[in-house]
Design a protein around this nucleic acid. Structure first.
Length: 844
DNA sequence: TTGAATGAAAT
DNA sequence: ATTTCATTCAA
């Protein structure tokens, strides 16, 4: 009785009714549980293919009547609740088990796991549940002929079709009344009575709704019992935990990858910088692929998890059987009888025998529930589940999240694929788990960092933000985070994956922006290198900043810093590019600039081609550049970055400091840019202009705030270190700038090296832009440097500049890793100085 | 009250 | 296509 009311009526429940029903249910549970168990077993043995007919008949009548009759129970079930679908039945059956296995998991997490299981579930078993659901629905519909799933709010009372309207009203009304009144039953009953009359008032059938609810509860109780029994098996729980983690991990990875791609595309479209957007898109494609790989691994893990789950289920089944042994046979017989009876007609409460004490028997729903339970409990089902689980991959979840269609396809296809993978890779899975965990630690930071950058990036450049942001749809990210927080190992693994993806994406982003194809490859290596380098940096440089999170934090910090720098660069570059375009339009009436955009595009293409051909070489070259520029200074900024990264996990303090620094730095740049823009009158970068306008507030809000950093404390801390850091950054930036400058000034030389692709026009543009920037930016060294960067960026072309920036970021990372060891690139640095830009571009 | 899942129904 | 809502129950 109450069960039904409690189900829903959350609002009402909250206060009284809802809770009461639960309690009542609890009371009912013992008896019901037993019955359910019996039924479940019976059902298990039997396969209820034919049951449907019977059930509906019984069910049809009775919902309301039952409610009325059952008035005694507290809940009145005024309105009928729509029957549970197959998945809900499945969830109801297995939720308790899942929760037992994963105590930490909340229902949401359990639901996700259940969804995974469902995805993996054998078609046969799934079909059983589906059949059950169908039967249930049929019965329900019979009971409530006019019932509509979606009570159209419209349904106005008005009209002639009193029956339908009444029913609807009754449904709605009943629900309302139930909600409103703690003891709404009677009221509803009075109302319901007419309905019953319309629909069909079979007193015997009356109990349907309540029965259904009760049955559900019973099922739950039964589950609980089974689960409790199962819990005794520690090993099983352990296994399942791992599985769950794996599943989660897979899910996360998939979700991240998906989200990223979608966001990227969207943002790209929206972003003012089309070029960047395109870049992002290209990068996305790459990213997606990589995540896919990771996913593949995850699925294997999932498969193992599934297998474990299978075991658990088996255990449960066995337990249940044991408990129910005596009754099982009877129950089976009864079931058969019940089914027959139901088919024959509901009039006979065959169930009553089983549930007689409960008076559940009458309602077909009960049967359904029992069948559900049975399904769950049934060894066959469990076996099938086990098989399915083993076979199917968890990836499906991720896919599901992203795209339902994908999910379905995956689910369908998955069973086989995952099984194979899983089977092959238990050890692999473990190794993967370890790797994942290890990565995850870093990734966590990376994710957070990424997230912060995302936020920052968003305001700065839509494209970047889009890339990162896209993946972080609230739901997925939040859920993931929640899960991670809840579960320890599993969470870490899960989260780790997403972070990895994110980090990858971030790294990719940089290259992608700069240049899609080539960049991506270099980036991944950079990423790998970075983590290693980071710890070193941390040790050497910042004891303070690094604090606790060293490795993880360092990774995060680096990534975050990179991302922030890159973003900022991009943003600037965008601005500069816009300026350059404007200037071009003015200046370059004659040269190849004729199509600045084309030139840019050409550059991009060029970059791609080069990157594809000689990405590695270029990267190496770039590294030396960084060494020059950064040399010692790099360490400081790195620290800062690290700090930022470290803060990422603890966004408030750490991030705040790093971000604040960055903010300041960026702010300066921005201010300079503003001046430039004002001079140039570049309307193109609305975002950027906004940032300028907002100035500090805007930055904070958009960038830093988004990042969650606390700007003030960070600002406070920064001054001392910040100045140094800024210097370091400047130097780094100068490097970048220099490279760009070198590229520009030596453009001819650079062109010589790889002159083909770079359009002269772009070079000229860059040079002009640089000159402009230099003149404007000369105010502060920092500002100048930043400006120079920006100027350089525009001069070359947004794309090119972006690519250069991306490379720089990558370079920095690599360089960091390398810097500890004096690179043999001495010659290269020179080259860098001379024609670094080209190289960088090529790399990108 | 929300959310996490899936699915059936309705709009 | 999108919305509604069925179950569960911790935040």
């Amino acid at each position: 009785m109450k069960g039904s009311s409690r189900n829903k009526d959350h609002s009402t429940e909250g206060e009284g009714t809802g809770k009461r029903p639960k309690r009542k249910c609890l009371q009912w549970h013992p008896l019901l549980a037993k019955k359910l168990l019996d039924f479940s077993e019976e059902e298990e043995e039997e396969e209820e293919e034919e049951d449907i007919d019977k059930v509906p008949l019984l069910g049809a009548d009775g919902l309301e009547q039952d409610a009325d009759e059952t008035e005694d129970d507290e809940s009145s079930e005024q309105r009928a609740r729509r029957p549970m679908n197959a998945f809900l039945l499945f969830c109801k059956r297995h939720r308790s088990l899942v929760r037992k296995e994963h105590p930490r998991l909340d229902n949401r997490g359990a639901t996700k796991i259940l969804a995974d299981w469902w995805a993996v579930l054998d078609p046969k078993e799934k079909q059983k549940y589906t059949d059950m659901a169908k039967e249930y629905k049929d019965a329900f519909m019979k009971a409530n002929p006019g019932y509509k799933w979606c009570p159209t709010t419209n349904k106005p009372v008005k009209t002639q079709s009193s029956t339908v309207t009444n029913r609807k009203k009754l449904w709605a009304f009943a629900s309302d009344s139930a909600k409103d009144l703690p003891s709404p039953r009677r009221v509803t009953k009075s109302e319901e009575m007419p309905q019953l009359n319309f629909a069909m008032a079979d007193p015997t059938q009356m109990g349907g709704l309540s029965m259904l609810l009760l049955a559900g509860e019973h099922a739950l109780t039964a589950q609980e019992v089974s689960s409790s029994t199962c819990q005794s098996d520690a090993t099983n729980s352990m296994e399942t935990c791992q599985k769950s983690s794996l599943f989660q991990f897979a899910e996360i990875s998939s979700s991240t990858s998906h989200s990223g791609s979608s966001d990227l595309t969207k943002q790209c479209g929206t972003s003012a910088l089309f070029q960047l957007a395109e870049m992002c898109l290209a990068s996305e494609g790459v990213k997606v692929k990589e995540p896919g790989k990771t996913k593949v691994e995850a699925p294997q893990d999932v498969g193992e998890a599934a297998a474990e789950e299978m075991e658990v289920e088996e255990l449960e089944k066995t337990i249940i059987k044991d408990s129910c042994k005596g009754q099982v046979e009877q129950s089976e017989i009864e079931k058969m009888q019940n089914w027959d009876e139901t088919k024959a007609e509901e009039s006979e409460p065959t169930k009553c025998r089983d549930f007689t004490s409960l008076a559940m028997g009458n309602s077909p729903f009960e049967r359904n529930d029992s069948t559900k339970d049975h399904m769950c409990c049934s060894p066959e089902l469990s076996m099938g589940d086990m098989n399915i689980l083993g076979l199917k991959p968890e990836k499906i979840k991720k896919k599901k999240k992203k795209n339902k269609l994908d999910r379905h396809t995956n689910e369908k296809s998955t069973p086989k694929k995952p099984c194979k993978k899983r089977q092959s890779s238990e050890s692999d899975i473990e190794s993967v788990m370890y790797t994942i965990e290890a990565v995850a630690k870093g990734d966590w930071g990376a994710e957070r960092l990424l997230e912060t950058p995302r936020k920052k990036t968003r305001p700065v450049s839509n494209v970047k933000g889009s890339v990162l942001d896209t993946k972080s749809p609230k739901k997925k990210v939040k859920s993931k985070e929640k899960k991670t927080s809840k579960e320890k190992p599993a969470e870490t693994t899960k989260e780790s994956k997403p972070p990895d993806f994110l980090s990858i994406a971030a790294s990719k982003e940089v290259p992608c922006e700069a240049s899609d194809n080539i960049k991506v490859e270099p980036l991944t290596p950079t990423e790998e290198v970075v983590p290693q380098s980071l710890p070193e940096q941390v040790k050497t440089e910042d004891s303070d900043c690094v604090k606790k999170i060293e490795t993880c934090g360092s990774r995060k910090s680096e990534r975050s810093c990179k991302g922030a720098l890159y973003k900022t660069l991009v943003s600037e570059g965008m601005l500069t590019s816009l300026r350059a375009n404007v200037d071009r339009g003015k200046r370059s009436s004659g040269k190849g600039n004729s199509s600045d955009h084309e030139g840019c595009w050409n550059e991009e293409n060029w970059a791609f081609s080069q990157s594809g051909t000689s990405g590695n070489k270029k990267l190496k070259r770039t590294k030396p550049k960084e060494e020059f520029g950064f040399g010692k200074n790099s360490s400081v900024p790195r620290k800062k970055r690290k700090v930022g990264s470290g803060s990422s996990e603890q966004p408030k303090s750490n991030k705040g400091s790093c971000q604040s620094k960055k903010k300041n730095f960026f702010y300066k740049i921005v201010t300079k840019c503003k001046h430039r823009k004002q001079k140039l009158n570049v309307p193109d970068t609305a975002i950027f202009s906004e940032d300028r306008i907002s100035s500090e507030s805007a930055w904070k809000n958009k960038i830093s705030i988004s990042a969650l950093n606390t700007p003030e404390p960070a600002m406070m801390h920064e001054p001392l270190v910040g100045s140094q850091k800024r210097k370091a950054r400047k130097t780094k930036i100068t490097h970048l700038v220099r490279t760009a400058d070198g590229r520009v000034s030596p453009a001819g030389g650079t062109l010589e090296e790889k002159p083909k692709e770079l359009p002269q026009s772009t070079l000229q543009k860059t040079s002009s832009a640089e000159t402009d920037c230099n003149s404007e930016c000369s105010r502060n060294a920092e500002t100048e440097e930043s400006h120079s960067i920006t100027s350089d960026m525009p001069a070359v072309s947004a794309f090119f500049s972006l690519a250069a920036l991306a490379e720089v970021a990558a370079m920095e990372n690599v360089h960091r890793s390398q810097r500890a060891t004096p690179l043999p690139h001495d010659g290269q640095p020179n080259e860098m100085s001379q024609a670094p830009v080209l190289i960088s571009c090529a790399d990108q």
